[in-house]
Design a protein around this nucleic acid. Sequence first.
DNA 1: ACAAAGTATGGAAACGTTTCCAAGGCGTGC
DNA 2: GCACGCCTTGGAAACGTTTCCATACTTTGT
Lengths: 345, 345
Amino acid sequence: MPPRPAQTARATIRDVAAQAGVSVSSVSRVMNGEPHISPELHARIMRAVNRLRFEPHSAAQALRSRASKTIGCMVSDLSNPLYSEMINGAEEEFQRAGYVLMLAATRHEQDRETAFISAVRRRRMDGLLLFAGDNAHTDFTGALANLDMPCVAIDREVPDVPSVRADHRGGGLEITRYLIGLGHRRIALLTGRAALLPSSERLAGYRQAHVEAKLTVDPDLIRPQTQGSDIAFSEVCQLLQGPDRPTAIITLGTHMLAGVMDALASNGLRYPDDISLVCIGDTDLARHATPGISALTWDLDQMGRVAANILLDRIRGGDAAQKIRPVYLPTRFILRHSGAKPRAP
Amino acid sequence: MPPRPAQTARATIRDVAAQAGVSVSSVSRVMNGEPHISPELHARIMRAVNRLRFEPHSAAQALRSRASKTIGCMVSDLSNPLYSEMINGAEEEFQRAGYVLMLAATRHEQDRETAFISAVRRRRMDGLLLFAGDNAHTDFTGALANLDMPCVAIDREVPDVPSVRADHRGGGLEITRYLIGLGHRRIALLTGRAALLPSSERLAGYRQAHVEAKLTVDPDLIRPQTQGSDIAFSEVCQLLQGPDRPTAIITLGTHMLAGVMDALASNGLRYPDDISLVCIGDTDLARHATPGISALTWDLDQMGRVAANILLDRIRGGDAAQKIRPVYLPTRFILRHSGAKPRAP
DNA sequence: ACAAAGTATGGAAACGTTTCCAAGGCGTGC
DNA sequence: GCACGCCTTGGAAACGTTTCCATACTTTGT
């Protein structure tokens, strides 16, 4: 194998100093915008910088100054639009503050989580943003405890780490109340991985609504399966085969809703007449299905931004110990036409 | 402001060497898995590494070894599911190869593009993945030419840079032929930003189909607007007001399709009877609308992976100069029920 | 048996910054 | 006129690795 073509040598701070006839430290000061620099020194240095197209080597900066200007971001699945929209918002805030995002998708595998934590440590990243992930991963939580680094979680519960969360419990409560109010007594819940905070919170809201109405919850109606439209399809088919089928379904809006709709169609059922439907997370599909599907929504972009700013605050040495209490963002119920009173039996 | 709580000091390679009673270079060799190391030296060093929880400082490594194990990834919009799915695939390949992804969303702003290029240079990233972006940005192309770094573009044309592309031209040709074959003569095309390669290629296919059928193209039917369902809505409304309205519409599947459907509905039109519809990029909405909407699709995850592997090859010193010819991935037309013969006028 | 070639280790010089310290010049208040 | 402090600059020591070179000890080939 031929040797790599030599990178065209790049100017170092020393070259700049030599070119401008000044000391290295002066160049450094100018590059970092420090005060107490005479105008003509500044001008001379900038001229040299431009002539040589000097660009500071950030590894050297990080090594010496102990700040990498880098944020780690751990998410289970990049292609999940819920996450990517939050990341999009967060990234904008980081960019504005001069930080770069390092991204890793963990696919819910504990190995990848710990591997990324290790990368975060080795790279001495300045902060870490954690998106919803399995709380069951104890190794991970352990690794995190030793992390000793500003950290913010999104829709995830991590000890001693501040978090931003949507009010999934309140949302679950609201939509369950709504369905109960319509007269439903058997409401199926397809809310995604049980180990994820949003799912467990929604379930709590769902239960609370039942308690309020003095109804008991049939555990068979709760289907905390993984994401995926095919899973949703088979789960719903199974629910519909049963003797005492549900009269309403609450389901995740991304991917799962599609499977649910397929399942209804292939069982010859139509919403809202035969069965009521509410989905979690508003999507094009929910909006444009006919009839439109009522949905629970919240501001993903905003969540990303809020989390990013909390993290930036902490990096800047903000009042660390305080306010690790979670910040909650509201959910909003969009009423469309997928709910109705249950058929008389 | 109180001083930041001192980071608990972390072990350096020197600490490890001292603890194990060996030289620094031996520790380095062990950490990098070099050969010619006696088993007992290896064991002694690993024991010290574990005891001290030593983790090499990657900035120092990067500084000395000139490899940052980092890939830059530039994309206009992270929340666009087309992109995020490709990124998801690419990230998996990078992760497997031990690289970390650095992500930036440019929002089609040239400033952000050049800013990111600068970040890439300063951080001495090992490679760069470019997603579809405006070819009109000449400053950017200039900056890129000086980049002197392994680079792969996805659905984007950059001089001297290899690329991976879906066969958008072939796809555009296929769906336009299909509609012409049904008898349509006035086919509207809402295909996204004209400056993006996929759009211009689709347009080329669209034109070619017209040429083949000896039809002339009415430029008014081509609406190369930006993304967004509201834009699509108003564009379609405008098209439908005109005296000689189109009998078929080709539209992007993400977001725009929703606006198109709204526009049809609010003009009292139904597909496929009143007007035919085909969308580009398969989505839940296209699949589950009633009737189902025919769609052009291609493998996003695969595209990301292919691009990642080409880039990794080049980083490893692969036959650089060769094969900068674009790699094309096929598109596939999924026939559903949104197309019909045009109404007799 | 001896040169040549390899194997296993250590020592020290980079890599390109930031930052601490020192020092010269200059104004200021007494 | 002098101690003091501020502004401006330079010099040099870190930061934590990798890598080159040297060295001591084994093999191997003849």
